[in-house]
Amino acid sequence: MNEKKQSGTGELRSIIRTRELVKVYKIGKIEIPALKGINLDISDGEFISIMGPSGSGKSTLMNIIGCLDIPTSGEYFLDSVNIGKLNDNELAAIRNKKIGFVFQTFNLLSRSNVFGNVELPLIYTSERVKDRRKRVLEAIEDVGLTTWIRHRPNELSGGQKQRVAIARALVNNPSIILADEPTGNLDSRTGEEIMAIFQRLNRDGKTIILVTHEMEIARHTHRVIYLRDGIIPGEEIINEQISAGEVLRRMPKLEDKLLSY
């Protein structure tokens, strides 16, 4: 159903398209299939989530979509580029230009401050230093951390760290943002705040792929793709997405709670 919708019209361009994607890990002589033929289409501007238990091939799929790994067989097109045929350096360049990563454990450089962390992807481009600075400042402002710009990650809260990671993912203006359990290490309120940022970015036109095992989080997105034993048994269109902004408004603030005691 979905596929028809995308391929038919020109207005919804497919930004990710996989065909019969297979990944087999070889440990000694034993072959372990992690993905057994994945067909996936994600349109430009979509906000989808991938759900599945551990061992379902979720991480493998993430790694391939994130161009950190290549499939054993099958095809993967990212923004019309065939990823399966690229070498290490070309993959690195694709990751740099087209993908913004947000990890569960934030993965910030502890020695660098907020500015340095957000600047990191630009170091590996040929961007001029002057333009760089402007873009870094914009990305930091976008996640509301302008006052924390000279602080190191260890001086920030979990939510702030994740916002730095989002700014870093945004700074190169990538085709997709790939978020792997971005709320997994956060309390529910902070997680909701992060989801609010993602929803806002999506409204502004960003394509976001979110990996999660929480249905509650997945219901913030347009479409949930289920993954089990290396195949996609089905997917679900979320008609009424949870609005993170709405949830936050309903949530009692910490100060209110303290006042009520």
Partner: peptide, 16 residues
């Protein structure tokens, strides 16, 4: 190692 992983994920080439 982790820093190297982050840098590579973000687009650092082997040469970098």
């Amino acid at each position: 190692t982790r820093e190297i992983g982050i840098r590579k994920a973000i687009g650092a080439k082997n040469r970098d």
